[in-house]
């Protein structure tokens, strides 16, 4: 799948499983599973797979993931609609408070004009909404060269540079 990672367009091999269909087997290879499913089937999955990834939406509190972070290579945060901003907080908490070092990926309604904010909250890969052009979206990272406040990136608040 074509995604944006670290401000570059790349192909990666994670496939996102939005809903679990209990009658069908999981796809082969690296899968991003719904967190609730992963949690319920944890023991089996841990035996079976070497790498793990889950996705959450705004309803699932990051605190629920904390004790499993070491297992995850990737956590995907869902933006069901553009204006649902809960995952911005989730991203910052996972990065800044719980020290998650793996890939944090934005999925769902992910559009160019959010990317600047998303990257500042610690998200590093993006699966754009299907109809959107990734080349065009890359420009979104360049919107601003100055930020007033600190976030999950390494920006120092402007006032500290003013001296």
């Amino acid at each position: 799948m074509r995604i944006i990672k670290d401000k570059k367009i790349i192909d990666d091999d994670w496939s996102l499983v939005r809903d679990i269909d209990s009658s069908a087997p999981l796809p082969d290879g690296n899968v991003i599973l719904p967190f609730m499913y992963w949690q319920e089937n944890r023991d089996a999955l841990l035996k079976q797979n070497a790498t793990h990834a889950v996705w959450i939406d705004g309803d699932i509190e990051t605190e629920k993931l904390v004790s499993y972070l070491e297992y995850y290579a990737l956590i995907a945060l869902d933006f069901p609609v553009f204006k649902d901003g809960r995952s911005y907080t989730h991203a910052r908490l996972l990065r800044e408070r719980y020290g998650f070092k793996g890939d944090l990926r934005a999925i769902g309604e992910v559009l160019r004009d959010q990317l600047f904010f998303l990257q500042r909250c610690g998200i590093d890969s993006y699966q754009l909404r299907e109809d959107k052009d990734a080349e065009d979206a890359l420009k979104g990272f360049e919107d601003f060269t100055v930020c007033y406040q600190a976030a999950a990136d390494d920006v120092v608040p402007v006032y500290k540079s003013r001296r």
Binding site: G85, Y88, Q149, V158
Partner: peptide, 14 residues
């Protein structure tokens, strides 16, 4: 004003 301007976490509040 400065802190809240383009605050990356709080630009899509309820």
């Amino acid at each position: 004003r400065q802190w809240s301007t383009f605050h990356p976490e709080f630009s899509f509040l309820p």
